[in-house]
Amino acid sequence: MDLRYGMNPRQRARIAGDSAAHVRVLHGSGSMINYLDALNAWQLVAEARRATGAVAAASFKHVSPAGAALNGVLDDTVRTVWGLGSASLGSLAAAYVRARDADPRSSYGDMIAVSEPVDEELADLLATVVSDGIIAPGYAPGVVAKLGRKKAGRYLVFEMDPDYCPPAVEMRTVFGVALEQDRDREPITADLLRSVQGPALTDAASTDAVLGMIVARYTQSNSVVFVRDGMTVGVGAGQQSRVDCTQLAGNKARTWWLRRHPGIRDLPLPSGLPPQQRVNWQIALASDTLTATQRDELAGLLPRPHTLPDNRERARWSRELTGITLVSDGYLPFRDNIDVAAEYGVTLVVEPGGALRGDTIADACREHRIALARTDLRLFHH
């Protein structure tokens, strides 16, 4: 089957034989990257659903999750950004909103994956966001036609056979070399968590750890994942240095948290502003990256003067962020990862262990009063 194109529009691409029989295209035409995102995202949400028993959703961009979440509580910031008011949402829509709100700037034009059949509520919500496609195990009557109207009729809709069992061996060809490996089928459960430092893990902490490990399994390595209350709040993907992963995930988590400051959350932007533009202004203010031109543009948008948090207030608010679980796909080689993590509200670190300086990692966790659990399970993904 021919694809729209490969990694780039100049590259032709196709699916060999009938290898995609378990993935139906109900609407649209996919590129290779669309398929890579959809297939990785589906594996993440399906595994999260099995491991936690909760409805799961993911927002993928360039073969890594921008966000992933289980169904849970929607806070005031989420409700403000996505125009939800006080309305209640079903578990599927709630899971996706939480996944997208982790890093909504990166989720712009995402591939969505959800663990349950798509209902009308989620389809209506997706009409308000910029997305390239979705993969799910099914769709309610009329939903595919509704989704198909997105992107001027080019929206991509995949249906996955939830009972499909993949081959035990994976293969890829790189520069003429055919490489094979066993599929990574090790179950990710709370039983993997071996406490090294700190108190015994609560059920909530174990769930966050399990979700973080599953997200890391489908994130480009090196990777570090920050999880809080059943949702990612920062993903540091594809970095050569692990401490850079930690810093990147931490910066995203802090931006997520600062978006919850009333001075940023309640920015009096025009009511008709699209949700993505509204959240982009929040992110620019939270990350303190406004250019001079943007400051002038924002001043023109605001109907009245508005007090933004100054540096001292931003620092005070940032210190209140806590309860974050850090999951690393590989062992932490140096204590600088822990020192950085402590600056971003991490209270539990989960890593495979095995570093030569493993004792220094435990010592650093003890100094910062951070719990440490090891799994003996590396989760590299390339």
Rank of each mutant, 00 (worst) to 15 (best):
K61V: 10
P65Y: 03
S19D: 08
V23P: 00
A38V: 08
I33K: 09
A48S: 11
D37S: 04
A56I: 02
F60A: 03
A38H: 12
M32H: 11
A21D: 13
S64T: 11
A48N: 04
A69G: 03
Y35F: 14
A68V: 00
N71M: 04
G28I: 06
S31Q: 07
S64H: 01
S29T: 15
S19H: 09
V55D: 00
A38P: 06
A58K: 06
V25E: 01
G67Q: 06
R49K: 13
A46F: 09
H27W: 15
T52F: 02
W42R: 15
L36Y: 11
A68F: 01
A56E: 02
S19R: 12
N71T: 15
G67W: 03
D37E: 10
S59N: 09
A21L: 11
M32D: 08
S59F: 04
A51R: 03
L39E: 06
V23M: 13
G30D: 12
L36P: 00
L39A: 08
H22N: 08
P65V: 04
V55G: 00
A69S: 04
R50I: 11
A66K: 00
A41M: 07
G30N: 09
N71P: 00
R49M: 09
Q43F: 10
V73Q: 12
A66H: 02
S59W: 07
